[in-house]
Structures are given as structure tokens and as C-alpha cells.
Design a protein around this nucleic acid. Structure first.
Lengths: 147, 147
DNA sequence: TGCAATTACTTAGATGGCTAAGTATAAGAG
DNA sequence: CTCTTATACTTAGCCATCTAAGTAATTGCA
């Protein structure tokens, strides 16, 4: 197989596997009414030591601000969080999970952890570590603004 | 690092790297007015030995039929393809690239190939081969309807 | 042969991503 | 102190994906 063909296969496998992962996890989370993106938002909010701003959340998730706005709108409608205007800077909204949001996070966290374990347990730990490292390095290369 | 943490890091790296790849390639293709998904559709259509049906294209791309419908609507509006009702089965629309579509494919193919080479050339071929294999295997596991 | 089931495509409406442009507020330069 | 600039969020509008439900045409069984 030519190097060119291999590079094409890799690009396709990266794309398809990421989608298959998201899709399979979304199906698993469907009963809880949350998709992977929503869950990730809630996870970062739950783990933060203090209420985050929307911009901080956008950085954590590596998405743009309007994406966060829409996501929070949905989660707020679902009663899982609320926004509070910062006391010292009226431009800033701090995002807080509601008790219901905290509860949902606990359940979803377990489901996601089980899912990862179930899908990855067959893989050798060293292989997984190596692949993770290569992907992280590739990600940095891709985000390099030079290209 | 615990195995659990490693699995979490892998899941995140898979998701983020796939998005970074798509994003970087989309930026590169923007001058040509095509996103990665559009380009992939055109590539399959260009390489097919005979005009494909929309269902066949959906299978190639591993997406659902409505996704293909929307994609083809856009590409048709852009003048890159047309649909023709099959002579023997009036339910079927065969998709044909226009001369302009064929031209665009030739350009985009070169850009995508250069992009892949540029981003992956630093990686050892054997490592790339191994990762591709693991991702493909994982994808099959994820698509397994059992879970 | 005729109607039920299947198949191919479309429409409707949701999620999740983007860019570009708008609004409100704070910070800083002069 | 004022006016420009920068920051935080929102809105508007697009692309890509999904599921569910609808339409048109064919297949196939009784």
C-alpha cells in the first residue's frame, strides 16, 4: 500500500471512528436526554472549582462562543443550569448547575465511564497511550496557525 | 496515570483531533467553496464506475439518506452535479457530476492530498499503519449493533 | 391480479458546529 | 474625564448530521 493511500485511509478512519464513537455514546446517553456535547459542557461546569464564565467554558471545550450560547440555552431550558450576572463585571455571566444538573451529571458520568471501558478494554494500554500521544501531537500541528 | 484517565484522554483526543482535522481542511478548501463533507461526496461520485444512486452514496459516506439529500441539494445549487431519474425504476435518482463538478474535483483532490501529506509526513509509516488499523477495528466495535 | 410490504427519496424539526455582525459594558489613552 | 478600543455575550444565518414521518414507485404474496 502506498504512503499516499495509507494517509488517505488514516484520514478517513479518524473521521469515521470519531463519528462512530459520538454516535454510539449518544445512543447510550439518549435515555438521560443528553448528547455527548451537552454532557461535556456539564462535566466541565461540575468539575470547575468556581462558577465559570461562558468564555472560559468555550476555551475548555475548544469551541466558539456562539456554540456555547446555543448549548447553554438548551441546557437552561432543560433546567440543568442557570446564568448569573457577575457582581463585579456586568458583561460576564457565570454559569451554575442546578441541583438537578448536578444529579444528572453524576449519572451521565457513570454511563460515559462504563462506555469507554467497555469499548477500550480490549486494547493494550501501551498502544492506547501511544495513539493518544500521536493524536494529541497531531492536534497541535493542526491548530498551528501557520499553515 | 490510571487506565481510566487514559481512556478518557483517548476519547477526548479522538474527538478533538478529528474536529481539528476537519476544521483545518475546511479552511484550506474554503477558497474552492467546498467543505470536507461536500468534497468527500464529490470524490465518491467521481470515482464510481457508473452513476450512483443516493442510497449508494449514503452507504459510501456512512451517513443517513436525509443527510445526502441536503448535501446534494447544496451541490446541485452550486452547479456541480445533477440528478437523473433512472430509466428502469422511477424511484431512483442517479447522481451525475457536471463538467464543472469534475473540474472542481480535480483541484480539490490535489489540495486534500497535499494537506494530508503536509500534516502526516512527520509520522512514521509503521505507526500510522498501526493507528489506522486500531481505529478501523474500534470503528467496527462501535458499529456493532449488540451494545 | 390486486393489495400489502418494501424501497427510494423528501420534508420537518432537532442538535451541534461555524463566521460575521450587533449590543452592552469595562478598560485605557490622551 | 471623555472617547476609543477591547471584551463578553447574543443574534442571524449557514453547513452537516440525526430521527421521525411522509410520498411515490416497485415487488411480491395470496
Amino acid at each position: 500500500m502506498s504512503e499516499e493511500q495509507l494517509q488517505q485511509d488514516f484520514a478517513l478512519a479518524l473521521h469515521d471512528t470519531a463519528r462512530a464513537w459520538r454516535h454510539a455514546l449518544d445512543r447510550r446517553l439518549k435515555g438521560l436526554g443528553l448528547s455527548q456535547a451537552s454532557w461535556l459542557s456539564i462535566a466541565y461546569l461540575a468539575k470547575a472549582p468556581a462558577p465559570m464564565t461562558q468564555t472560559e467554558l468555550a476555551h475548555c471545550l475548544s469551541v466558539e462562543q456562539p456554540t456555547v450560547v446555543a448549548m447553554l440555552d438548551r441546557l437552561q431550558r432543560a433546567g440543568l443550569l442557570r446564568r448569573e450576572i457577575d457582581a463585579h463585571d456586568r458583561r460576564i455571566r457565570r454559569v451554575l448547575l442546578t441541583p438537578e444538573g448536578i444529579e444528572v451529571y453524576a449519572e451521565v458520568r457513570r454511563v460515559a465511564m462504563d462506555f469507554r471501558h467497555e469499548k477500550l478494554k480490549e486494547l493494550d494500554v501501551e498502544v492506547l497511550r501511544q495513539i493518544t500521544g500521536v493524536l494529541q501531537q497531531l492536534q497541535r500541528t493542526l491548530e498551528d496557525p501557520i499553515p
